[in-house]
């Protein structure tokens, strides 16, 4: 049994064939068992739960035909929802890039009472169910809510407007930039800043010339992660958005509305557009993370 698994592992081991025999031979070891079983479970479960259902979306779309597909994904109400979803996601991710960098900096460089509690709480948007976040933000920013009563006299309406969508997406994306930038800042040697300051650089110049270039890859990675998460977000948004067609209706809600009208083909067409965007972002995130690791490796 173990021998067979060993052979399977060797057969799959492309590098082994390419390796010079002199190096490979003395290092030949007894292979661990369980390769076939573990890879088998992995592939079967991955296919059943993820790949086959996802392929259903693409197959359903191809059965639609190009004209029907185009009509479904370019209807004015759908296009308005793309504009809102991508616009609000971009704005929220930008705010999170700025404030995420600030929060990461404060948590790494300063000591103040409650710092560890704040650090742990940054992950709240990951742990809090989105529906709970949604009703809390809707209640706070409603005209009679804690924040709403203070913003209303200033003429700022957040709940049930596109601004509400932006607020919900900012909440949901908050941890990403903090958690990608934080480890990079922790590894940044302080001597670097001190040296720059000794050489006459002011605090802003130190930030711009020394700190910012180092954290930039992590910052862009966190920004992209927050953006990707915001595009697909549903639960935290629908309560505060008001969901007015053409104004405050996000794309995931369009999919749900079409489903409730039994327009499966239309729902799937819009979903396919979102899936393609998500896959492109996933590849971008993978590339960015590789870049970050390389940069960090070069620093160390």
């Amino acid at each position: 049994m173990a021998d067979r698994d060993f052979l399977v592992a060797r057969a799959f081991d492309a590098d082994a064939a390419a390796r010079p025999a002199s190096r490979a031979a003395p290092r030949r070891r007894p292979a661990l068992p369980g390769f076939g079983l573990s890879l088998g479970i992995t592939l079967v479960y991955l296919s059943l739960v993820v790949l086959i259902p996802l392929s259903a979306a693409f197959i359903k779309t191809t059965s639609l035909g190009w004209p029907a597909f185009w009509a479904a994904v370019s209807a004015p109400r759908v296009v308005a929802s793309y504009r809102l979803t991508f616009g609000a996601s971009l704005a929220a991710a930008l705010v999170n890039a700025v404030f995420g960098l600030l929060v990461a900096w404060v948590l790494v460089r300063y000591r103040f009472p409650g710092r560890r509690l704040v650090d742990a709480m940054v992950d709240l948007p990951f742990a809090l169910p989105t529906a709970v976040a949604g009703i809390a933000l809707a209640g706070l920013f409603a005209p009679n809510g804690w924040f709403g009563t203070r913003l209303d006299p200033l003429g700022i309406k957040v709940a049930f407007t596109p601004l509400g969508v932006f607020v919900a997406l900012t909440f949901i994306g908050l941890p990403f930039v903090v958690r990608t930038v934080q480890p990079v800042l922790e590894e940044l040697p302080r001597e670097l800043e001190d040296a720059a300051a000794t050489l006459g650089a002011g605090p802003l110049a130190v930030f711009r010339r020394v700190i910012f270039p180092v954290v930039l890859p992590a910052l862009i990675t966190g920004f992209t992660l927050a953006f990707a998460r915001a595009i697909g977000e549903y639960g935290s948004v629908i309560f505060i958005a008001g969901n007015m067609p053409m104004v405050s209706e996000i794309t995931p809600l369009i999919i749900i509305t079409k489903l409730e009208q039994y327009d499966y083909a239309g729902a799937t067409a819009v979903a396919t557009v979102m899936l393609v965007v998500s896959f492109v972002l996933l590849l971008a995130i993978n590339a960015l993370q590789a870049w970050t690791r390389k940069r960090q490796g070069a620093q160390a």
Binding site: L54, A57, G232, Y234, G235, P252, L253, T268, A271, L281
Partner: peptide, 12 residues
């Protein structure tokens, strides 16, 4: 990276 709504849709 898949929207939760789409996760539901594909099972439908």
């Amino acid at each position: 990276s898949v929207s939760p709504v789409i996760a539901g849709l594909i099972y439908v």
